[in-house]
């Protein structure tokens, strides 16, 4: 079972407990956003909070716990922190570019923004983007 020392001091236990509970709740909220938000361009913001705050507080808790437990400075969790914080925006940006590119290629406006502006700048819109029936039809098409 779990390997936690019997005589763990409250000065270590309480911050670790708070960080763990806060981090896990925030991760849960982030993925709830991923599930519940209506469109892709909103959904991509959901996991960002679980990456930054959730992973941040978990790594902080881990650092604190092992530093006190082993009575030496254990900060190699900083490696994961730096890596995750560096790569998460890269992934998000690539995914967002992919989504925009695919939406444009499939001939639909980004489906969650307002109805398309009248064809003043008429590039990359569908031919019948102004007629509501056609817009609905293209919106429902599954691009896979």
């Amino acid at each position: 079972m779990m390997n936690i020392p019997e005589d763990i001091s409250p000065w270590l236990a309480i911050p670790v407990v708070l960080l763990l509970i806060g981090g896990s709740l925030i991760t849960l909220i982030g993925t709830l956003g991923l599930l519940r938000l209506p469109h892709f361009y909103q959904r991509i913001h959901g996991p960002a909070i679980s990456i930054t705050f959730g992973a941040g507080s978990f790594l902080l808790a881990s650092m604190l716990y092992f530093t006190v437990l082993q009575q030496r400075l254990v900060i190699h969790e900083l490696l994961i922190t730096a890596f995750v914080m560096l790569t998460a925006p890269v992934t998000a940006m690539l995914l967002m570019r992919t989504a925009v590119y695919r939406d444009l290629r499939n001939g639909r406006q980004s489906p969650d923004l307002k109805p398309p502006t009248p064809p003043a700048s008429g590039h990359a819109t569908t031919a019948g983007a102004n007629s509501p029936g056609l817009m609905e039809e293209t919106r429902d098409r599954n691009p896979e």
Partner: peptide, 18 residues
């Protein structure tokens, strides 16, 4: 869409790391 699935997979990796 496919990009939704990729985003969910990415979040799944993060959760596994946590």
């Amino acid at each position: 869409t496919a990009q939704d699935r990729v985003l969910a997979l990415d979040t799944l990796w993060i959760c596994a790391m946590l």
